[in-house]
């Protein structure tokens, strides 16, 4: 196990290094922040001084080496715009995004699993067909449109839920969380549901396919031959088997949820990382963009590792490599 984790960490370091080059070069290619950051009225001497202060006078490879050296010391650069460490800017906004992503995943499982189970057990029922048709809508309706419609209906027409912000928050472990207050939960409800919509459909489809497959397996028939109660067969024998693909997909999807919560955050004015990165791209705030992308890469790596580890808990047949 230790050997396995060690090997995974080395791999992760390699991936991070390659990504840092790609990200750095990519962001360099997007455009010159100087034009946006420095006022057009500034004279030549002022321009020169500003460029030097930002370290933009050096050739690309030198800029990269400076970045790499600082990054190894935990410094991913200072934001051109806010003049604050980029990492701190992002980490300040991360809890909001994580809260939204976890909320969405929770909603997806809470809604998707029961619906998928039902659709899998009664594949020909009218309700099951309705669920499956609904899941196609969940897949194909654009997030931003659904978000706007949700605001229209629940915030504007009915006035049940607030449309923007995080609401009342509680300080726990030095960060603010919305989900611990009733007002915060009301604020969280719509954006989380909006972000969850695609995942709900995904979970429904995965669960239904898994259930239909599992119900035909001999072990289910044998469980019936043992005289077990049908609820035990479905909730223990079947569910434990189908949780393997569901956890994999939802786990891997989690990274995507964080990375692409941009749209939902913009619509609901949720003060998370997604909103920050959009603003930073608009003003070509390179350090923030680079730091954000590196953090997302790290997050994907960690999530992948966690999914693999969850596997061993769920499926006894899986043994991690390097374990003797």
């Amino acid at each position: 196990m230790t050997l396995y984790l060690l090997r995974r960490c080395l791999q992760a370091a390699g991936v991070m290094l390659v990504m840092s080059v790609l990200v750095f070069v990519g962001v360099y290619a997007i455009g010159d922040p100087v034009e946006i950051l420095i006022s057009p009225e500034a004279d030549q001497i002022e321009r020169e001084r500003a460029i030097r202060a930002l370290g933009l006078d050096l050739p690309l490879w030198q800029q990269y080496l400076v970045f790499l050296k600082n990054a190894l010391h935990g410094d991913l650069g200072r934001s051109f715009v806010f003049n604050e460490p980029a990492l701190k800017l992002i980490l300040d906004r991360m809890p909001a995004t994580l809260e939204l992503a976890f909320g969405a995943t929770f909603v997806a499982l809470l809604v998707g699993l029961p619906l998928g189970l039902y659709a899998g057990l009664r594949p020909n029922g009218a309700l099951a067909r309705g669920i499956m048709a609904g899941s196609i809508l969940g897949f194909s309706l654009p997030t931003f449109w659904v978000g706007l419609m949700l605001i229209m209906v629940f915030a504007v027409q009915l006035g049940w839920l607030p449309s923007t912000g995080r609401g009342e928050t509680v300080d726990v472990l030095g960060t603010r969380w919305s989900f611990l207050t009733l007002d915060g939960l009301r604020h969280l409800a719509m954006p989380a549901f909006n972000l969850a919509l695609f995942k709900i459909s995904l979970v429904i489809r995965l669960t239904r396919a898994g259930v239909r497959e599992a119900m035909l397996m001999d072990y289910v028939k044998f469980a019936r031959a043992k005289g077990l109660h049908p609820s035990r067969i479905v909730l223990v024998h079947v569910l434990k088997n189908i949780m393997i693909p569901v956890i994999t997909v939802v786990g891997l999807e989690f990274g995507g949820t964080i990375a692409f919560s941009v749209v939902t955050e913009s619509i609901f004015a949720w003060p998370g990382m997604g909103k920050l990165i959009i603003d930073s791209i608009n003003v070509l705030d390179r350090p923030v963009i680079v730091a954000y992308l590196m953090l997302i890469v790290l997050m994907f790596i960690v999530i992948n590792l966690l999914v693999d580890l969850t596997y061993t808990a769920l499926d006894p047949r899986v043994r991690l490599e390097g374990r003797t």
Binding site: D218, Y219, K221, H237
Partner: peptide
């Protein structure tokens, strides 16, 4: 079932739940 009448299946690799 499983109480007064029991059944044994053909393929032992498939009859026990793997997880």
């Amino acid at each position: 079932r499983g109480n007064r009448i029991a059944m044994i299946f053909q393929d032992p690799m498939m009859t026990l739940n793997p997880v």
